[in-house]
Design a protein around this nucleic acid. Structure first.
Length: 234
DNA sequence: AATCTGCCCAACCGCGTTGTC
DNA sequence: AGACAACGCGGTTGGGCAGAT
């Protein structure tokens, strides 16, 4: 037996919301709060399913929504969070008050993804060049640098970047242009094996972590780990 | 001016998770 | 413990729009 549909679709309206429908939904929620999405449309006099009402409210009607373009800083934050969390848009959105997961997802798919791809291509070219130079140097000293060495070097860099992001995420309050407060825990966002490996290597990077403790601002964070070509333009 | 093309984003769909009985 | 309902999330779609041809 398949899953039951979320609502009885017969006679329900779909597609874009009219301003009249918006008004009804806003009025109802402001007067009654959000109790049960399933019963809400009926009570509010809407021919919509609860799911549709929820989506409309969360993504468009909520009064605390921040409208407008994403700033360069926001984009860079999204890139870093996406590198850490993957396509977990709601987790990412929780770090951007007033932004919705849908908005961030759309922005990622339409703009940031292209930008990241360009950056990755550039980095790939750069790594290839660097590895060629290193190879030449190693050969000169009769030691061969294999691709494996280059991969390890890159993995180590990535690991350090993740630790850096972890520090940022675990801070209770980050004061940037606005104020981000987070209760985010890395433990529930990355797989256990990664958490384990972080602990194993903890001692070896403790010195680095100690020095990173002084990083309190987003700008300092950015300048410490972002490649210069994606630094926010302020 | 008409048509084509690509982009953007609101909305939908299906599935996983959580809560309740 | 398991069945069911409701919620929440991420992937995808499709319509509107702007710029190019």
């Amino acid at each position: 037996m398949g899953r039951q549909p979320c609502c009885d679709k017969v006679g329900l309206k779909r597609g874009p919301w009219s301003s009249e429908e918006d008004r009804k939904l806003i009025n109802f929620i402001l007067n009654n709060g959000i109790i049960c999405w399933r019963t809400m449309p009926k009570l509010a006099g809407l021919l919509r399913c609860g799911k549709s009402c929820r989506l409309r409210w969360i993504n468009y009607l909520r009064p605390d929504l921040k409208r407008g373009m994403f700033t360069e800083t926001e984009e860079n934050q999204i890139i870093q969070l996406h590198a850490l969390l993957g396509n977990r848009w709601s987790k990412i959105a929780s770090h951007f008050p007033g932004r919705t997961d849908n908005e961030i997802k759309n922005h990622w798919n339409t703009r940031i993804k292209k930008r990241v791809k360009t950056i990755q291509d550039e980095e790939k070219t750069q790594v290839n060049t660097e590895s060629t130079v290193l190879k030449d140097q190693e050969q000169a000293s009769e030691t061969t640098l294999t691709d494996k060495n280059v991969q390890s070097f890159n993995a180590a860099n990535e690991y350090l970047n993740l630790l850096d992001v972890e520090l940022w995420l675990n801070q209770e309050t980050i004061d940037t242009s606005g104020s981000y407060s987070t209760s985010f825990s890395l433990e529930d966002s990355v797989n256990p094996s990664m958490g384990e490996s972080l602990h194993i290597q903890e001692d070896s990077v403790q010195q680095w972590v100690d020095s990173a403790d002084s990083m309190l601002s987003w700008d300092a964070f950015c300048s410490s780990i972002f490649p210069t070509h994606i630094l926010p333009i302020v």
